[in-house]
């Protein structure tokens, strides 16, 4: 028998203060449990630019390392490390995919990337977790700015 009614899904996280339940999308869960492009060997990794950002309120910290093609200014590799919750980890992981897919995004385009686009690709984040998607982009901007200022010299 087909049951068209969707069962209410079990909550992933329950708000400590309000008992409000959060639900993470399957994509968020996948990126959280199987994060892409994490930098494991920091000492031997050669990169063109690096940026770090942190949220002093919730304590999250993210660092991204970029390899950029000097001719096309496309991002060839985006490695990262994040200290934070599932949303923060999944957001950085997704960002690293978005930046490097289809031959890599140009740094001009990367600077225009919005948290909304990351959240959309993650099939949504709970409203309270939206801020987690901003941090990675902050680190990215820092890295790109560093890259550009180095080239000017």
């Amino acid at each position: 028998m087909k049951n068209k009614k969707q069962k209410i899904k079990k909550a992933d996280v329950v708000d400590r203060n309000t008992d409000k339940k959060w639900l993470y999308s399957e994509i968020v869960k996948d990126h959280f449990l199987n994060p892409r492009n994490v930098l494991t060997d920091e000492i031997n990794y050669k990169f063109d630019a690096k940026g770090t950002s942190g949220n002093p309120i919730c304590g999250d910290v993210m660092t991204v390392w970029l390899k950029i093609d000097p001719k096309t200014e496309r991002i060839k590799e985006c490695k990262w490390r994040t200290y934070g919750c599932a949303s923060a980890i999944a957001s950085t992981s997704m960002m690293s995919e978005v930046l490097t897919e289809k031959g890599g995004m140009t740094i001009d385009k990367a600077l225009e990337l919005t948290p909304q686009e990351i959240v959309k690709r993650l099939a949504g984040l709970p409203p309270l977790k939206f801020h987690c998607s901003i941090l990675g982009l902050d680190a990215l901007k820092q890295a790109i700015n560093e890259f550009r200022s180095k080239r000017k010299k």
Binding site: D15, R16, N17, T18, K20, I57, C58, D60, G84, C85
Partner: peptide
């Protein structure tokens, strides 16, 4: 007791 599980962060 992490802030990431509370609404007021």
């Amino acid at each position: 007791g992490s802030a990431c599980t509370s609404s007021d962060l």
